[in-house]
Amino acid sequence: MADASEPTALLEEECRVFTRYLVGHDPDAGALAAYVRAHERDARLSHPDARARDEKLLLLARRGPRRARAADACARIFAPTSRLRRKLVCLLAVLEVRGSTALELDTADGGSSAVFLARCVLLCAAAGGRALAALLLLSFERLGERG
């Protein structure tokens, strides 16, 4: 158990969703264990956010890789030091030092720089769109809660 509010099973499931978001497949057993261990040993990961909205971003992100990306895009802009971002960055650190995922994360796709630069522009626009979508989702959920 890492934390009373975060049982191991929850952390493992979170790790699976976030790894699928970051690299497109499930984590191996070593990464899964390291992610849980990180939560046991580094209190910064379990420390809840002060703002309820930031905690909701984490709940949204746990619901699947696409939502994780939208919540992450939103958190990067509006809650850059939130628990969600801390957890995602920690997972990225774990994945980048493990031989099985290191190359996937940091190997250039090749191709032309012009196409790359064009894709960067599109990515920025898409990230903005995702951030907005996440905000809308959170707002609707809040309305739903009130209704």
Binding site: D72, A93, L105, D106, A108, D109, C124
Partner: peptide, 26 residues
């Protein structure tokens, strides 16, 4: 280098930031 300190500093979600970073690393 460990890349997570740099990737997280880009003003994008991590997936998009990773795409930008790995193609700009060199």
């Amino acid at each position: 280098a460990l890349i997570h300190p740099i990737v997280q500093s880009l003003p994008l979600d991590l997936k998009s930031a990773l795409f930008v970073f790995k193609n700009a690393h060199a």
